[in-house]
């Protein structure tokens, strides 16, 4: 269980990106973070990945305040968080296989296990036949699917995605969202930030609406 408890984030320069945001992320949930540009969607994801730290308030994972976690423990924490980016952040000079294998290499798995898991992940995103291709030889949608395969291959306890369909047309966007949905159905907890309300509304999940650093509606039906 992951909980943001009255989290305030001030960026350097004093800009208040989040103000006393409280949010529970339950295991197995699929959460869409929506809101206008600058609402604080990416900031929440960056906090969950410990790329940024809360200025005030607590970020609790299983009761532990990871917001104050020492820097040397961050790598181990991040290995439990899969990340998907709008620009997918694949390594351009490596084939799809190597890109997907990277989290497993970092985790120190053996070669056999890596091959098995990478093939399974590529199979799940429908790219088993493209494992030798470098990202540039793949379409935008395929690149993003490689990105998703990389994010799930190490079986993270949380997957975060920041505008994963930002570069894709409507049809491809829906297809990518359905890929996320399928992973969520097998138990991966997800937080996806998107400004595309129409797209998000076509996928069943919890919708959390942000506005100027505050939660308007946390989608739990309680507010």
């Amino acid at each position: 269980m992951i909980r943001l408890d009255k989290v305030t984030k001030l960026y350097r320069g004093g800009h208040e990106a989040l103000r006393e945001v409280s949010l529970d992320i339950n295991p197995g949930e699929l959460i869409f973070l929506t809101g206008h540009s600058g609402a604080g969607k990416s900031t929440i994801l960056k906090l969950l990945a410990l790329i940024e730290r809360p200025t005030r308030g607590q970020l609790l994972v299983d009761g532990r305040n990871v917001g104050r976690m020492p820097a040397r423990e961050i790598p181990a924490y991040r290995r439990q968080v899969g990340m998907v980016f709008q620009d997918h952040k694949l390594l351009d000079d490596r084939p799809a296989f190597d890109n997907v294998a990277l989290p497993l290499i970092i985790a120190g798995l053996g070669r056999r296990e890596i091959e098995k898991r990478v093939r399974a992940a590529l199979d799940q995103v429908g790219l088993l036949d493209k494992e030798r291709q470098v990202p540039l030889a793949l379409s935008a949608g395929e690149q993003q699917r490689v990105g998703i395969a990389r994010a799930v291959v190490a079986r993270p306890r949380l997957l975060i995605a920041d505008e994963p369909t930002g570069n894709l047309d409507a049809a491809l966007s829906l297809e990518i969202m359905q890929v996320f949905r399928r992973f969520n159905e097998v138990g991966v907890t997800m937080v996806i930030a998107t400004h595309d309300l129409a797209l998000a509304s076509r996928i069943s999940g919890r919708h959390v609406a942000l506005d100027h650093g505050r939660i308007l509606d946390d989608g739990s039906g309680r507010s």
Binding site: I51, P75, R78, Q80, V81, D92, L102, P103, I106
Partner: peptide, 16 residues
Amino acid sequence: RQEIEVSKLLGATDAF
């Protein structure tokens, strides 16, 4: 640089 950044995002330690 890109590889290093991505590796750190994926949880690579400094030693790695």
